[in-house]
Each structure stands twice: as structure tokens, then as C-alpha cells.
Nucleic acid binder design. Structure first.
Lengths: 189, 189
DNA sequence: AAAAAAATGGACAGACTTGTCTGTTTATCC
DNA sequence: GGATAAACAGACAAGTCTGTCCATTTTTTT
């Protein structure tokens, strides 16, 4: 399926990147991955110790790509309020791309037997990074807020971001995310 | 495990109720269910056509129990603002019970190959029912809101509810839900 | 107490899973 | 071009999964 001149490692990760997100981790078998990546099974197991190991590599890649893609998307956006809004714009953008199945990190979070180990750590780190981004640009937008006000507003925005993402997934519609964006705009006005 | 004088059907559903939530649907095998429910495999397949069928019954049961438990929890709560806050109180209550692993319906939503079929319908219905509850009591609390204001505020509250629920799950902490409750209280003041 | 229904244990089928191993072919490097 | 490393295909192990079937035992009903 992915027959380009890329390395086997790259093909495996690219395929896992697609299948783990669209089908889920457990629902995706090693055999499907090697088939669609056009890689021998022995090669895969030389490159990755186990399926769990591949999952961690997948999450690392997702985390990296997420920021790379977001940075490209929001390029030129001024700091502060607009940057926070671009977070919602980016999600709206993803939802409209139709393959949207919710936040890739939360998807995995629900599939893990527990929330310990490297996979869970990466998932939490992503959440914290988003929260930090909101907190930073909230401070830039309105430095006069008390620490408590800023914290509450940050939490509120993050919850709007997460909550609307789920609803968009569940109802296969962009509206919840657009509503959330409008609400944030008003809150920051 | 569940050796009480209950019917096999009841034992199977009770066991599925626990395992599907704590381990996930795919991660729970039929054999584990019949073992822990002390029911013969033939009995299970006489009572339920398939594992997918059992999933639907599980969701029906969850939906029923959710409202029964919530009604018991919030009993005596006056309509309007307090009722909306009791939604957050109830979630805080669940989180503190330690076995909390996020919203049971969303857990399944992420495990489904797609969001079609009866299982997905039940999940969406639950979301809509929560939203309707918020909308109703929002109107009671403040009938003066325009339709648009009420709609936006309702969405906001629902997103706070969902978003804080995920965070509580991810970080195994009750604080996000408590923060969300406080924010709602302020928004409705 | 006899007849009908429900539930049991457990073997079994068939397909799937992850991961290992062998031997061959292709690509890279000096 | 010859040596070394990487990637290949695919059989295989050992175990899992869902679902079916059968003969036996228990429970309920008449």
C-alpha cells in the first residue's frame, strides 16, 4: 500500500499512524500493519520490540506531528487571544477533514488497561502542553487577571476544547466546535 | 464470583457491567464473563445472540442505572441552578469512588469501529439527555435568556461537564471536576 | 410425581492474535 | 566486485478469541 522509497521503519509508523487512529489500537493487528506497510514481519519485530513498543512510537510521532501541523496552521497568528482561538480553528479544520475520530490521544487513553507507563505519560503530557499554551497566551492577552482567575479561565477554555471535540466526534458535526470557539471569543472580549 | 440467587441473565449483565467498564469491551472476553458470572457459555449464548448483542444490553442497563442512581443522588434538589450543579456533584461523587474510568458511554464510543448501529444510538441519546436536562433547568433558572444565549450557555456547561470528566480520568484527580463546578456556579450566579 | 424447561460443563471448530525463526533476496559500502 | 548488512516471504508456535453443540443435571411447572 505504501510502496514509496521510504524506509521500512517509516512505512510501519506511517501505517500505524493511520490504522491506530482510524480503527483503534486493539482492533489493528500486526498482520494488517505489515501488509499495508509492505514490510516483512521479521523486519517489524527487528525495528520494534513489541506492539506496545510500536504504540509508544506512534504516540511520540503523533505528538511531534501535532505540534508541527499546528505550528504550520497557525503561522503568523499574533500571540494572545488569537492564538487561543487558532487552537479551536485548528480543531475545526481537523473535524472538517472527515476522518476525524476525536482526539487521538484520548482514544488511546481509553484503550489502555491502566493509565501507567510511557504511553499514558505521553498522553498526559500532550494535555498539559495544550493547557500550558492556553495559560501562556491568556496571560499575554490579559496580564491583569489574578492567578486564580487566570487558572479558572484556562481550565474553562481547555474543557471547552476537549468537550466540543468529543461532541463533534460523537455527532459527526463541526457545530459544537464552532460554538465553543464563539464562546471563547466572547469570554476573551 | 457472583453466586447469588440471581438469574443467569442478571449475573451476566452485572458482570459485563463491571468488566466492560473497567477493562473495556474488546479487552473483555466471553470466557472471563462466564467465569466470573458463574454461567455456562451455552446459557450466555441462549440469552444473548452475540457479544455485540450483550454490549447493547449493557448500554441499555447503564443508561437505565445512570438515571436511577442520579435521581437517587439528587433527590430533593430544587429545580434550576441547583439541579445543574448536582450533575457536577454526581460526577464528583463517581470520581471519588476510585473505580472511575471516565464516562462509560464515551469509553465504548471510542471502541466502536464506527458510530452507527444501536450501540452508538444509545450513546448519543445519553449525551442528548444530559444536554436536555441542562437546557430545561437553565430555562427554569433564568427564563429571561434569549434562545441563543440559553443554547450557548447550555453547550458551555455540557462541555465543562464532559471536559472535566476526561481530565479527572486522565489525571486521576477530582480537582478538574470541582473547578468546573465552581465555574458553573459563578456563571449561573 | 411426572413432564417440560432451563442451566450446566466442557469439548470442539475455525479463525484470529502476537511473536519467533529460517532461509533467500536485495541493497549498501569499501 | 566482493563483503556486510538490511529486508524479504512465509511457515510455525502457542495462545487467544467467538460461537456451536451435546449429553447431563437442575429447576420449574403442571
Amino acid at each position: 500500500m505504501v510502496k514509496a522509497k521510504s524506509t521500512p521503519r517509516e512505512r510501519v509508523i506511517a501505517t500505524a499512524n493511520r490504522l491506530f487512529y482510524e480503527q483503534g489500537y486493539q482492533a489493528t493487528g500486526i498482520n494488517q500493519i505489515i501488509d499495508e506497510a509492505s514490510v516483512a514481519k521479521a523486519s517489524l519485530y527487528q525495528l520494534f520490540r513489541s506492539k506496545d513498543d510500536l504504540l509508544v512510537e506512534y504516540l511520540v510521532r503523533r505528538e511531534h506531528d501535532w505540534w508541527a501541523d499546528f505550528d504550520a496552521f497557525r503561522e503568523g497568528t499574533p500571540e494572545g487571544k488569537k492564538m487561543i482561538l487558532s487552537l479551536f480553528d485548528y480543531r475545526i479544520h481537523l473535524i472538517q477533514e472527515d476522518r476525524y475520530r476525536g482526539c487521538c490521544f484520548k482514544r488511546i487513553a481509553y484503550e489502555l488497561p491502566d493509565l501507567e507507563g510511557p504511553a499514558a505519560d505521553i498522553i498526559r503530557e500532550h494535555s498539559l502542553a495544550i493547557k500550558a499554551l492556553v495559560a501562556n497566551h491568556l496571560k499575554i492577552h490579559n496580564p491583569g487577571l489574578t492567578r486564580l482567575e487566570a487558572s479558572d479561565l484556562c481550565e474553562l477554555i481547555v474543557n471547552l476544547y476537549e468537550g466540543s471535540g468529543i461532541q463533534a466526534f460523537l455527532f459527526h458535526h463541526v457545530k459544537p466546535a464552532e460554538d465553543a470557539r464563539r464562546t471563547v471569543q466572547r469570554l476573551l472580549a
